[in-house]
Design a protein around this nucleic acid. Structure first.
Length: 394
DNA sequence: TCTGGGGTCCTAGGACCC
DNA sequence: TCTGGGGTCCTAGGACCC
């Protein structure tokens, strides 16, 4: 018999802020952009939610709804630190722990009853340890598969503990609202509603063929199975990341090409450093642009051989920018490296590449930076883009 | 003063090859 | 005049999630 736990940290970023500054406890907390800036709410405390504030809401609106809240910046490093401690508690209970994101994990607890007791007891033990040792609150969903456990964990937040017994998956799902169906977002719901399918009950009445005709083969299969509590395999893929990216929304729209290229160069260096640190390579670069009216487009280039360093990436990005950008002021610029590979097959050609010297110099710079010897920065990065300061990547 | 940033996966069309 | 079918790679865009 299979038993999976899905564990979510409640209002994680906001809870960490309250933990680190007890004077905030019980107050509305909004973590995200500063009021007055361009940006959104990243996470908010339950006290702030009572005012209608929620994740992804424009910060200006959050401020309008709840001006008395504590508005705090995202401190990703601190959250990552606590996240690791939480994950290692999970791993004390089962080595089969998948870290789904910074604030959630999926645990295979099958066959652990002799060690930890029945699932509810085990969940309580985990909850108590996270509370006593770290000071954070969790919600747990327990179910015969990872998908239903995930959905269950979200139905009684905060501090929830929801158990779905073997064989009860379909019934559990049928009692939910359409919006609780993980993987079916606003666009898909709107589509269903146009077709008169506004409830889970109506969705369950549709045949597999009908659902596939609405969402296509893959999407339809997902929705059909998910609605019945059959795990569509949401955590099946391997965890190695397939792309890295960085993007910046300017405080004011920018049309100065030097400023935009300066942003891209900084991103190229950051991304290539991450690739080196992970020992991966990429042959595909993507540039993303967003105009003032929110029109968003992207351009990409795939090469036969991996990029040899950040100048290589930057030059490709510059080419894509000149090809795609029409000169209107940009709200956002982004850079990504896709199709990541561990490089084992192409390692030789990478080292024989003429750009290799540059790459080696760059790696030396990164190593030096890690040893605290300071970082070699290209002159281009030093002057600030006039008229617009890119927000610090966090 | 509306609308972040970092990811994943899917689709659809075109190029190209056999 | 009509004109295969499959497979792979690539590109651009979009939906979704945290």
């Amino acid at each position: 018999m299979s038993v999976f736990f899905h564990i979510d940290l409640d209002a994680f970023f906001a809870s960490v802020e309250a933990l680190d500054d007890p004077s905030l406890a019980g107050r509305p907390i909004v973590v995200g952009a500063a009021p007055g800036q361009r940006g959104v709410v990243s996470t908010c405390s339950y006290e702030a939610r009572r005012f209608g504030v929620h994740s992804a809401m424009p910060i200006s609106e959050a401020y309008r709804l709840c001006p008395q809240a504590a508005f705090l910046p995202v401190r990703m490093g601190r959250y990552a630190e606590l996240s690791s401690r939480v994950m290692s508690v999970f791993e004390d209970f089962t080595p089969d722990t998948i870290r789904v994101s910074i604030d959630e994990a999926s645990l295979d607890m099958s066959g652990t009853e002799l060690l930890w007791g029945v699932p509810v007891r085990a969940a309580e033990a985990i909850r108590d340890r996270i509370r006593d040792e770290i000071g954070l609150s969790i919600s747990v969903g327990i179910a015969p598969n990872r998908y239903v456990a995930k959905v269950a964990s979200g139905t009684m937040k905060p501090a929830g503990l929801v158990v779905v017994e073997e064989g009860g998956e379909a019934e559990f799902m049928s009692g939910l609202r359409l919006k609780d169906l993980w993987g079916v977002g606003p666009k898909s719901r709107a589509r269903l509603e146009e077709l008169g399918v506004g409830t889970m009950e109506r969705l369950l009445a549709l045949s597999r063929e009908t659902v596939e005709s609405i969402f296509g083969k893959a999407g339809g299969e997902f929705v059909y199975e998910a609605a019945r509590g059959i795990d569509p395999g949401i955590y099946a893929s391997e965890s190695r990341s397939r792309s890295v990216s960085s993007e910046t929304t300017y405080e004011r729209d920018v049309s100065d090409v030097d400023a935009i290229e300066g942003t891209l160069l900084g991103m190229a260096e950051e991304l290539v450093a991450r690739l080196y640190a992970d020992g991966t390579i990429s042959r595909c670069v993507v540039v993303k642009l967003r105009y003032g009216d929110f029109e968003t487009l992207s351009a990409r280039e795939t090469r036969p051989e991996p990029f040899s360093g950040s100048s290589d990436v930057f030059e490709a990005a510059r080419g894509l920018l000149s090809r795609k950008w029409d000169g209107r002021p940009l709200r956002l610029v982004g850079l990504g490296l896709a199709g990541l590979d561990d490089g084992s097959r192409v390692q030789r050609s990478l080292f024989e590449d003429p750009g290799e010297r540059g790459a080696r110099v760059e790696r030396a710079g990164m190593d030096a930076a890690r040893r605290g010897l300071g970082r070699l920065t290209r002159a281009r990065l030093i002057p600030k883009p006039p008229g617009a300061t890119p927000r610090k990547p966090s």
